[in-house]
Structures are given as structure tokens and as C-alpha cells.
Design a binder for these strands. Structure first.
Lengths: 232, 232
DNA sequence: TAATGAAAAGGACATATGTCCCAAAAAAGG
DNA sequence: CCTTTTTTGGGACATATGTCCTTTTCATTA
């Protein structure tokens, strides 16, 4: 992690994502800016959190683990995403680990400042509510699909949700990855078993594996395998 | 469902749960009040929603289903709970079904009114944020535990989270039920398989089945079976 | 008190899935 | 270009779990 002292860069992103518009602007806000390398942990699970963060550049992966060491990949995030909303509102430690997938830049503003000067600002509260509501809606969807559908069902739904041309779907974008390992982690299964399912779908002539991706050969049959289920 | 026209009763609950304090009080708010029988559906999945609802009496179960007909029991709710927060903020149809467990009373206020007069009210926004944040935090927990742990792990964790005397835990209270059928639905498994797990824990001398509940005989061994995992 | 119906529990079987480890393929480095 | 390391994919085995249906137990009614 590196602190970035570059007021022009800061200004650029505050303007690009209209972060300033969420806060009262009567005075200079105590923003800080940090850069994280690919693979670096932005926030560890269980740690105390002190700032509300905005991801303004790069891509990060959000994971949640249990005491046995297994982890579920919840989603990927892109600009503009908020990190620390639950921690601000509920005053709890970091709930899910945030890890940079490529180089990331985050802008932060201290919880103390927000609580002292901005906690009743409707624009901020609206922004937080919209982000948290989206996360709850999609978390509930993933929860039920991941638990109630078979791995073949889930994988077919995943492909329909992320690759289908009519998938104009925010959650599908957050789940998109071409790594079989990461897809397994998103669906809560093992790499081995997902490979069995992929092999089975290839054998049925529904998909074909390419160098770095999966190609759909039969959308109709894939839709049947998905049972109409979508991640959205 | 029956509409209740009883301004004294309405006043009583508005006062008891301080619902009035969340809104501007410069004029009479267009509250409506409905009563639902045990087993009656308060809100169906997929339906359009027009009012923000407060559960002020009774208990209701929240479930979420997939297109194959299987359903996951997300939680039980008690007064004071909010129904329709996601639907208000994100302008989407009902995401999860709400069904009365016993006789329920809800007070509603139309979305149109909220959007016209109260949408920037910090007290309302705070109340909504707190409820939605709690739901997201607990949904994420349930999501990862339910997917990554075995049914025996999950059931032991469930017992530790709901029956343990030091379980001073809001989510544990929302998950509490003595019905094996409902516990199976909460954990995303079948009634048959949960009974195997219960039989196994009885055989290990960890629990014993009573007339209408489960008794813990060995907290230490149960904690081991739970692997330190909790629903909270 | 006995019969009937409903609810709860279990047997049998098949499939899905996890685990462990080995083999093959691809990528990286000298 | 060859060797080594890393990544990807699959074999084998065991266990977990779902499905279907039967049996047992409990509750209700006559």
C-alpha cells in the first residue's frame, strides 16, 4: 500500500465520480488516497475499519471465509464502489476481505469526520442506502441459488447471467471471470467438481472450452440446464 | 387480510415503536393498518410493492425461492421489523415472500407519500440504513456458512447460535425455531438429511431429542462439531 | 378406547460432491 | 531450445446428500 499525495489526481477522481457532491462542500474534506498492488489485501477480515473507502481505479475481489479456512468469492468490484458501508453504520470489524485484482486506487474519508459532520447528510445517506440495498438484493439471490440449485444448474445460470447478450445485468458484470478456479469459488463448489460439470456440458455439445474462455454453442440447451435461474 | 380502522390502536403502536419519530410530524401521515391470519401471505414474491410496512405485532417468516420451486427460509421477523426497504430504494418487485406465522399486524405508509415528502428525511434514511445493513451483514454470514460447511457443521453452528446461553445475538433470535422442517429449510438441506445428522449427534451423546425441542448434553463437543462457526 | 388421518422418522438406492493425489499441459527461466 | 516450475485437468475412492416411498408415532375424532 502506498499513500498518494497528488491533489490533481485526487481532484480528477472526485470530479469524475462526483464524490464531492455527496458531501457538504463548505470546507476542504480530509480525503486520503492509497494505491494497492495486484494481489495486495486492501482490507483484512476482522480488522477494525476507520474510513469509508471509494474504489476509483482498478478491480478488487470480495471474499468471505469461515473458521475452517474455506472462502466464498462474493463478487468483484469496480469503480465506483463503496468499501466500509456496513462497518460505518453498524460499527463492526471488516466483514469481508477486499483484495486487489490489479492495481487499485482508493479514496478514503475517516469515519470520525463523517460521524461528526456528515452523518445526517441526505445525499450521503442515499448513496450508502443505494449501495447497501444493491448488495443485499444480490446477496439474497446468490444465497438462494447457490444453496438450492445443483452445481450444473448454478454453472449454467452463471453462464446465462454473465455471457448472454441480453444480460444487461449489474450483478452479472460483478461475477464475470474466465478463471474456472474463481467460478468454483463464486458457486461454492470445488475446482474438481466444476471441471466435471464443464466436461459434462462439453459432452452434451452445449459449450466448448477455448484457450482462455468458454464459448456457448447451444443457448437453448444452456437455458434449459439453467432452469430459468439467473444471478441478478 | 383485514384493514383495521382503529385510530387508538394505531396511535398505541406508533407510540410504542416511536414510528412517528422517523417522519416529519407537521401533518397527519397517511398510515394504513392491516391484520393477517396465521399462514396468510403478507407479500408474494414478484408482486409490485406500494407501501413501506412495519411489523408491529406477531411473527412472520421470510423465504426466497428459485424457479424449480425450492425455497430457502431466510429468517423470522418480529416487531419492529421493516418490510419493503429494498423495494422502496431500488424500485423492484417483492424480492422475498413474507408469510404470517401467527396473527400479524402491520402498519404501512405509501411509497408515493414517502417519495414526495420524506425521501430526504435523515431519520428515515438512518432507520432504513440500519435495517438494511443488518440484513446484509447476516445474509452474508448465512451465505458463506450455508455454502461452505457440511450439514453437520451447520446444524451444530445453528444450535450454538440459537440455544447457547451466551448467544446474545440478534440473528440467532431471528433463526430460532424448534421445527426440524424449518431448520432444514434455513440450512438449505432436506428434512431427511437433517434427521440423519440429528440421529448422528444423538448417537454421539451430544444432544437428545425431547418432545418439542432439542436438548444439548455436551456443549464442548457441540462446539467442536461447529468448528467455531456462528450464525451472526 | 379404538379407529383413522396426519405428521414425523427411517430404509434403500442413486447421484452429487469432496478429497487426495497423479498426470498432462502450459508457462517461465536459463 | 531445453529444463524446471506452475497450472490445469482427471482418476479413484469415500462420503454427503437427495429422492422416493414405507413405517412408526402422534393427534384427532367418533
Amino acid at each position: 500500500m502506498r499513500n498518494i499525495q497528488d491533489s490533481e489526481l485526487l481532484e480528477k477522481y472526485l470530479e469524475e465520480f462526483q464524490i464531492n457532491r455527496m458531501f457538504h462542500q463548505s470546507k476542504q474534506l480530509p480525503y486520503h488516497m492509497q494505491q494497492y498492488h495486484s494481489g495486495e489485501i486492501i482490507r483484512f477480515e476482522g480488522m477494525e475499519m476507520n474510513s469509508l473507502l471509494f474504489l476509483v481505479n482498478g478491480k478488487a475481489r470480495i471474499t468471505s471465509s469461515i473458521e475452517t479456512g474455506k472462502a466464498l468469492l462474493l463478487r468483484f468490484i469496480y469503480p465506483l464502489s463503496v468499501i466500509g458501508d456496513i462497518e460505518l453504520i453498524r460499527d463492526v470489524p471488516v466483514q469481508s476481505q477486499v483484495q486487489a485484482v490489479d492495481e487499485c486506487l482508493v479514496i478514503g474519508i475517516p469515519f470520525d469526520y463523517i460521524k461528526k459532520y456528515e452523518i445526517d447528510n441526505p445525499r450521503l445517506l442515499h448513496m450508502l442506502l443505494e449501495h447497501v440495498s444493491f448488495k443485499l438484493q444480490t446477496c439474497t439471490t446468490a444465497s438462494r441459488v447457490n444453496l438450492l440449485a445443483s452445481v450444473e444448474n448454478k454453472f449454467a445460470s452463471y453462464l446465462m447471467s454473465t455471457l448472454s447478450p441480453d444480460a444487461d445485468n449489474e450483478f452479472g458484470i460483478e461475477l464475470q471471470t474466465s478463471s474456472v478456479k474463481e467460478i468454483a469459488s463464486l458457486l461454492g463448489t470445488t475446482y474438481r467438481h466444476l471441471n466435471r460439470v464443464i466436461a459434462s456440458l462439453i459432452e452434451q455439445g452445449i459449450i466448448e472450452r477455448q484457450k482462455n474462455s468458454i464459448q456457448i454453442l447451444n443457448w437453448k440447451e444452456l437455458e434449459k440446464a439453467a432452469n430459468g435461474i439467473r444471478y441478478k
